[in-house]
Design a binder for these strands. Structure first.
Length: 427
RNA sequence: GCCAGGGUGGGGUAAUGGCCAUCCUAGGGGAUUGUGGUUCCCUCGAUCUGGGUUCAAUUCCCGGUCCUGGCCCCA
């Protein structure tokens, strides 16, 4: 025992079968739900030219990316997010795409950050982009999609919707730096700091309306503060649609979403019990395509932090275990056991066969741990063309003719809930 | 990058400046070779890492690393 045990890199995770099955279940729900909205899945490379990400987010993010030079001296980065790659793909695919483009995606992303609860160096995002549709209904639909996805996943969340026009109108007389600083302060819910910033820079008269705006929760309140801005009609229409669709949301005109390429509607969702990293979804309207060499195209999209919703669901039972059957056999009946296993597997039944040459009773013991039913194929069974089926939950035992096995086993599984839960809490 | 708290078999734990490092659980095997999950027996398996203090360190001190939570950031 002198060899060093290798471990996984910091910020990464191994996933055992129970956890993977739960993740696959949620993934499937998300994909299916997006598909019902007409969003079809796309995929992009795990790594891209570093420039793709710095164009979008600035040079500063290099320190938080897995960026390196490849053997051809290209500057490459593991993708830290998926919106930029998807928009790059949209630009590359060019004019042939039928507009508007409705895509969803699911993939792992990589960021070199300090791991903490709900934050890992390799993490998964599920997202959707609606490209080249610019209307109140487009905005409303993408929000409805995000809302329905989170509901389909089964998380409890609050949805907050804002529009950058609110804050930008109010702060239009201030410098870009002051705007950025104020938005950042508000993002941290530090309205005192925001007020201080305004006062220090000679905009004291904006403090009161700003604080009022952060507390405003209805459209009339908001427009009473910022006036009759050009976007008013569209924002009201979007809200009407969301109300009609029964989407539960809060208006939050102070949502900042830092980056400059966001325009118009922005929205975020939060879940409980996630500690400091409680935002599970974020999105908004943006213009990115022209940065990647395409035409200036209005887009709206969002990304869901998949790992965070899994953390939020960690106390929920997600998967129903599939029934499991073990075939018990003797050395001289091995081939018959293999044939029976093959036949049952054709029916989609999970069948286990001892691979280690264990004794009959050891096989039985193992079956008791992993299976719901044992099919015994011994000498007697082979001679008489039958199988013995033991219900490992009740201990009941029956004999069926081999030819009747398929029908009867299906019937049997229908009436016997599988006992194997084996769902450990997914932490 | 910063702060705090932690690292003993796979998981959960006890204890200790020296003696065989405790217990539970999980895993493997078995109890006259065709009946398990109960029981009994056997077995596998651990002091994160490097340095220091010491006759002697898992234990005390320092660094690293990893984990957990928070800050920063969050595309």
């Amino acid at each position: 025992m002198s060899t060093k045990i290798l471990t996984k890199p910091r910020g990464t995770r191994d996933m055992l079968p129970d956890e993977m099955e739960a993740r696959r279940e949620i993934e499937t729900r998300l994909r299916e739900c997006a598909r019902t909205f007409g969003y079809r899945e796309v995929a992009t490379p795990a790594f891209e030219e570093t420039e793709l990400f710095t164009i979008r987010s600035g040079e500063g993010i290099i320190s938080e990316m897995y960026a390196f030079e490849d053997k051809g001296n290209r500057s490459i980065s593991l993708r830290p997010e998926l919106t930029a790659p998807v928009l790059r793909m949209y630009v590359n695919e060019g004019r042939s795409l039928v507009k508007p483009v409705k895509w969803c995606y699911f993939g792992d992303c990589f960021r070199y950050e300090r791991p903490q609860k709900g934050r890992y160096r390799q993490f998964w995002q599920f997202g959707a982009e609606l490209i080249d549709a610019d209307s109140a209904l487009a905005d409303a639909e993408i929000i409805m999609l995000a809302y329905e996805l989170l509901k389909a996943a089964g998380v409890t969340f609050t949805l907050k919707i804002g529009d950058l026009a609110c804050m930008r109108t109010l702060l239009s007389e201030t410098s870009a730096e002051v705007q950025a600083a104020v938005r950042q302060a508000l993002d941290k819910r530090d309205s005192d700091k925001a007020a201080m910033l305004l006062t220090e820079n000679g905009h004291e008269h904006l403090v009161k309306p700003l604080l009022a705006l952060t507390k405003a929760t209805t459209l009339p309140e908001i427009f009473a503060i910022i006036g009759d801005i050009p976007q008013r009609e569209r924002i009201e229409e979007m809200c009407q649609i969301l109300d009609a669709a029964g989407v539960a949301y809060e208006l939050s005109p102070a949502i900042a979403r830092g980056l400059d390429y966001y325009v118009g509607v922005v929205f975020e969702a939060f879940a409980e019990g996630l500690g400091a990293e409680n935002q599970i979804m974020g999105g908004g309207a943006y213009r990115l395509a022209h940065l990647f060499g395409g035409e200036d195209t209005p887009s709206v999209g969002f990304a869901i932090g998949f790992d965070r919703i899994m953390v939020a669901l960690s106390n929920t039972q997600i998967i129903t275990p599939r029934p499991q059957i073990s075939i018990i056999y003797l050395p001289q009946t091995r081939d018959a056991a293999v044939r029976t296993a093959a036949m049952l597997r054709m029916l989609g039944i999970c069948v286990d066969l001892d691979l280690t040459g264990r004794s009959f009773s050891a096989q039985m013991k193992n079956a008791g741990k992993i299976a719901d039913a044992a099919i015994i194929i011994g000498k007697k069974e082979v001679e008489e063309d039958i199988v013995t089926v033991k219900n490992l939950k009740t201990g009941d035992q029956v004999q069926w003719s081999l030819s009747a096995l398929p029908e009867q086993i299906i019937e049997f599984l229908k009436h016997n809930e599988c006992k194997k839960q084996n769902i450990k809490s997914l932490q």
